[in-house]
Computed example of a mutant assay.
Amino acid sequence: MVEQNALQLDTVFHALGDATRRHMLRQLADGEQTVSQLAEPFEMSLAAASKHIKSLEKAGLIRREVRGRTHICRLESGPLASASEWLVFYEHFWTGRLAELERLMREASPAPQSPRPKGK
């Protein structure tokens, strides 16, 4: 189970590692779109767009449904939630480490002294 989750996270982060695929996911956050609609903002063939979509499908980030000759894609949020959980763990880890570093630096620095009036 743990190994399967690790493989799924690897696939999700690989899919998210490409700007085109992230843009496609952002488009799908607004609702279902056809493959043509997803490909439209990019200067690429439908075949190239389809490869990006297959990568997103493999990661479980989108689901494609065929309606006649039209392929409709929709966002699947589950894998994004898993990736977010993984990232939140490290966010908490580093926030804690940085807070500890700040505390240690405050303890190590001398207390500020009040300025003395001139001439005395």
Results as ranks from 00 to 15, higher is better:
65 E>Q: 10
57 E>C: 00
60 G>K: 11
13 F>M: 15
18 D>G: 06
26 R>N: 12
56 L>P: 00
23 H>Q: 14
24 M>D: 03
31 G>E: 03
43 E>Y: 10
53 I>M: 06
38 L>H: 04
78 G>E: 12
13 F>N: 14
62 I>H: 00
78 G>D: 06
15 A>M: 07
49 A>R: 01
62 I>L: 01
40 E>T: 00
29 A>Y: 11
78 G>R: 11
13 F>I: 15
76 E>L: 14
29 A>F: 13
62 I>P: 00
55 S>H: 02
4 Q>T: 10
43 E>C: 03
74 R>G: 13
8 Q>Y: 05
49 A>D: 01
56 L>I: 04
25 L>R: 10
28 L>Q: 11
44 M>Y: 10
35 V>Q: 07
43 E>T: 09
31 G>N: 12
78 G>H: 04
58 K>F: 09
44 M>T: 06
3 E>N: 07
59 A>I: 00
35 V>S: 04
38 L>A: 05
75 L>M: 05
62 I>N: 03
43 E>A: 10
57 E>W: 00
9 L>N: 06
56 L>N: 02
45 S>N: 13
66 V>Q: 03
3 E>I: 10
6 A>P: 00
66 V>W: 03
22 R>A: 13
19 A>N: 12
30 D>I: 00
46 L>G: 13
44 M>D: 05
44 M>N: 07
57 E>N: 06
46 L>I: 11
66 V>L: 02
64 R>H: 06
71 H>G: 03
3 E>A: 04
26 R>H: 14
27 Q>C: 13
50 S>Q: 07
60 G>P: 07
75 L>Y: 05
51 K>L: 11
37 Q>D: 09
49 A>E: 02
15 A>F: 06
74 R>W: 01
27 Q>F: 10
74 R>E: 08
53 I>V: 09
36 S>V: 04
8 Q>S: 12
77 S>H: 11
44 M>R: 08
31 G>T: 03
63 R>L: 12
67 R>A: 02
47 A>W: 10
38 L>N: 09
79 P>C: 09
53 I>Y: 01
25 L>T: 13
7 L>A: 15
19 A>K: 12
62 I>D: 02
27 Q>A: 12
36 S>F: 12
13 F>D: 10
13 F>T: 15
77 S>A: 12
16 L>M: 07
24 M>R: 14
30 D>Q: 15
53 I>L: 13
4 Q>L: 04
18 D>Q: 12
48 A>H: 04
17 G>P: 15
36 S>T: 08
78 G>M: 05
23 H>L: 12
3 E>M: 08
5 N>P: 04
14 H>R: 14
71 H>M: 04
22 R>K: 15
63 R>H: 05
33 Q>A: 14
49 A>F: 01
41 P>K: 05
50 S>D: 09
69 R>W: 04
10 D>R: 10
45 S>F: 07
64 R>L: 05
51 K>C: 00
34 T>H: 06
35 V>L: 06
37 Q>E: 09
49 A>H: 01
36 S>D: 11
66 V>H: 01
23 H>F: 15
28 L>N: 12
25 L>W: 02
43 E>W: 03
60 G>A: 00
54 K>R: 00
59 A>R: 02
6 A>C: 08
73 C>F: 06
51 K>Y: 08
